[in-house]
Amino acid sequence: MNSLDPRVSRLPQIQEPVSLKAPLDQFGTFEVFVQPKEGKPFQHEGIVHAPDIELAWVLAKETFTRRFTCTSLYVADTRDVYVSPLTEGESNAYDPIPETRESGIKKTYEIYHLAKRGRQHVHAGTVQAATPQHAMTEAKLQFNTGKTVYNVWAIANDAIRFTTPEEKELWLTLSEKKFRDASDYKGGDKLKEFLERKLIS
């Protein structure tokens, strides 16, 4: 290819037409949850596509924690998030949730609330439950204060890839990495000096 960019000029010729992407070419879907500050609740940030949960964690770190201060993140396969219907107005997402009783072996579920439409889902707490449906019932008992919640999510703890304590060092930004911050680009002095020079000449 004839380009101004020598790297583009060096690219090999691909003669045959590029075939269409097969399903899953962009991998599975994983939901990403970030803790912005120590002591603050985790919140839903978005998704990444990855072939497995380990790579999902790596990609989530690259995609969602580039600038904002962040102390931890975790990921879960979208299929492992149990979702209540989305409500509106005064109607509380907890209201239609039935009372399910379960006697099986319990495990921990992370519960998320959507407190305001248009905002992100925020961590409300954890419950012990035998099934996702049961986790919803438990969440209703423990976290339903009567204040309208528009959507509830439950994720089994063992389906989550958490950040280990050692990995948390990743977010301790080195001072030499300040070049990624707007605050590192103070052109003011240079501009002022230039304008003064222009005034004299």
Partner: peptide
Amino acid sequence: KAAYVTPLA
């Protein structure tokens, strides 16, 4: 094991 699903939000 992975599956493409529509993101939740």
